[in-house]
Amino acid sequence: MEQTTFKVPKMYADHHVKAVRDALLGLDGVEEVMASSAFKIVQVSYDPDLTSPETIEEKLQAAGYGPGEDWEVASVPEGKEDRSPWFQLIGRVTETNKVDLEMSGEFRLY
């Protein structure tokens, strides 16, 4: 029995955990799957005579959970960019005002 671990950023919630487990547990030689949506990690215990990390990775990719692949989500949603009208209208800034930071001390850091 051997173990291999994959980072699966797409697996951010438990319905993806189910999908990943269903995909991998259907593979010959996969004995156990530990999938964590909190850490976005999949740990697979497998029989090296029956399967390999490459086959497991292919299976993950086929199921839409290729290791290292993430959702194509814009880091800043449309209209919410800094200095966009949205922020200007309601007077919010997303950059640290150093004066504020100094005044508030460590409390604001957490």
Binding site: S75, V76, P77, K80, E95, T96
Partner: peptide, 15 residues
């Protein structure tokens, strides 16, 4: 729903 979304905070952001 999309209009309610906000940017994921980055390290430099303290609000």
């Amino acid at each position: 729903a999309r209009s309610l979304l906000h940017p994921v905070p980055e390290d430099r952001l303290w609000t």
